[in-house]
Amino acid sequence: MRQIVIIAHNTFRESVRDKVLLNLIIFVLLLIGGSLYFGELTIHNEQKAMINLGLSVMLMFGFMIAVFIGTGLVYKEIDKRTIYSMLAKPIYRYEFIIGKFLGLSATLFVNCVVMFVGILIALFYLTRQLDATAFVLLQAAFLIYLELLLTTAFALLFSSFSTPALSVFFSVLMYIIGNFTPDLKLFADLLQVNLYPNLRVAQIVLYGLYYTLPNLSNFNFISRTAHGEPIPGAAFGLGIVYFVIYVGLLLSLTVMIFERRNFK
């Protein structure tokens, strides 16, 4: 555990030194611009627009960090051969992978916290009050954070056996697919297997895809939050459980691949 924390800390330090957190400046500028513009709208609408903008940008910027830094986490070590001297140290390979993952998770955490506080300040500036929305906003932001970690885990998995360009491509693809998986189930449900028994196979395949592909709708409550709807406890809990299982599987798979690799 100690080794994991040490590696995570160094990974975090790397992203800070590589000026990853500079994206926050752009974020703050966007919020300020948004506040000035949304001030022209009615009270309710400006709150809605601000939450929508804030959370969407949080997701978008976080996604870019997760994909672009995430795919480079391991690849860069191999490419620059820094991994040689690492593997000779008293660490297990799984500690290296988990440490790398947690390091980027910490970067994303700082990013999300700062953005969350920024959104709160902007909201307060617009509405001059902090009501129950703040708590829902926290929940929504937390689920976005989990979604970003899931994306990171995917990026890490792809980069453990593929080139950075392909890893980025796969990660983006996974993200797009992940946003449409509920439609797979919807489609499967609509198939009239009683009338056309041949469709049974197609239905099974669709269900199979639905349950194996990531389902990012478990984490996406941006527009509901913007409309002031609370996130049901069950949905929130499901998001967390889903995250733990899915990320656990992805990281295990990454470690399995990484354990076997020869670094030439």
Binding site: D18, R81, T82, Y84, S85, A88
Partner: peptide, 21 residues
């Protein structure tokens, strides 16, 4: 054996290290 690695040292060929440190 991972513990044994505390008692050895290794210099890779043409060493590269984290250049941000």
């Amino acid at each position: 054996d991972v513990e044994m690695r505390k008692r050895i040292g290794y210099l890779p060929e043409t060493p590269y290290f984290y250049d941000y440190l």
